[in-house]
Computed example of a mutant assay.
Amino acid sequence: MLTDTSPPTHPPQTQAARHFSDSIAVAGVLPGSRSFGRDDLLAMADVRSGPATIQCYSGRHVRDLGGMRGVRLTALLDAAGMQSLPRAACKRLVIAALAGDGYACLFTWHELYNTPVGEGAIVMVEQDGVALPPSAGGLQLVSLADLRLGPRQASAVNRIEVHGWQAACRQAS
């Protein structure tokens, strides 16, 4: 039996290394759709938290997070004009934080602006005082007020989409 002992032409990459984000675009029904680069996010990062444990919905341990620094998801939405929308329209909004691998973390306007979830839904820019590296996917979203942090955490977050409930339902069908 022949065995190929030559080195691979491309070293294997981890999932996080294939997907990296150092900026986030906020788009959808907001009047001020815009992008935030790493420097913008670092300047806005006023939330400090941690440590925390990421667990799957099943309870399986995924990873531990040390000290975190980040930006509230609501701060990004407000900077893109969320507060200027009529309140009646906001109550029908669905917000999706999208990762480079296609994973989506979903929120409603009600959760983000009327429950403790909004205080803990953050885009992490640093862990333990160090900017998140490409090997970790760069920017990460975590919803710290969830009972299990795994389902609404994502690496390489690069886009936040805001849509009305009826529009979101039509797009899904």
Rank of each mutant, 00 (worst) to 15 (best):
A136D: 10
V94M: 06
L93E: 01
V94K: 04
A121M: 05
A121D: 07
A131T: 15
I122Y: 07
V130G: 01
K91S: 06
C90P: 00
G129D: 07
D101K: 08
P134K: 10
V125A: 06
I95F: 02
M124Q: 14
Y113M: 13
Y113C: 14
M124L: 15
A131K: 08
E111D: 11
A136P: 00
W109T: 00
L144K: 10
K91G: 11
T115H: 10
L98A: 05
P133H: 02
D128T: 05
A97E: 01
P116K: 14
N114S: 15
L98K: 12
V123Q: 00
M124D: 04
V123K: 00
I122E: 12
G138M: 06
G118I: 10
G120D: 12
A121F: 02
A136M: 02
L144P: 06
G100Y: 04
E119N: 11
W109A: 09
T115P: 11
L132H: 10
A121T: 12
M124N: 07
E126C: 10
L112M: 11
D101H: 14
G102K: 06
Q127K: 04
Y103S: 10
F107K: 05
L98R: 13
D101E: 14
Q127L: 03
L106K: 03
L112P: 10
D101P: 08
V117M: 15
G118T: 07
N114Q: 15
V94S: 01
M124I: 15
V94E: 06
F107S: 13
P134E: 09
D128W: 06
G102T: 05
V125H: 07
F107M: 09
G137K: 03
A104E: 13
Q127W: 02
W109S: 00
H110S: 12
V117K: 15
L98G: 01
A96Y: 08
N114T: 14
G138D: 07
T115I: 15
D101T: 12
H110P: 02
N114D: 14
V123S: 00
P134W: 04
P116Y: 12
V123R: 01
L98S: 08
E119M: 05
L112S: 07
G137H: 06
T115A: 13
C90T: 04
Y113R: 15
S143A: 15
E119V: 05
A131M: 11
L139T: 11
L139I: 13
L112Q: 13
L132R: 08
G137L: 06
A99C: 12
H110Q: 15
A131L: 15
A99W: 02
T108Q: 03
L144A: 08
G100H: 07
A97G: 05
P134F: 03
N114H: 15
A121N: 10
L106N: 05
L93I: 01
L139A: 11
M124F: 03
L98M: 15
P133I: 00
H110E: 10
V94P: 00
K91L: 05
P133F: 03
G102A: 08
S143K: 08
D101Y: 07
K91D: 11
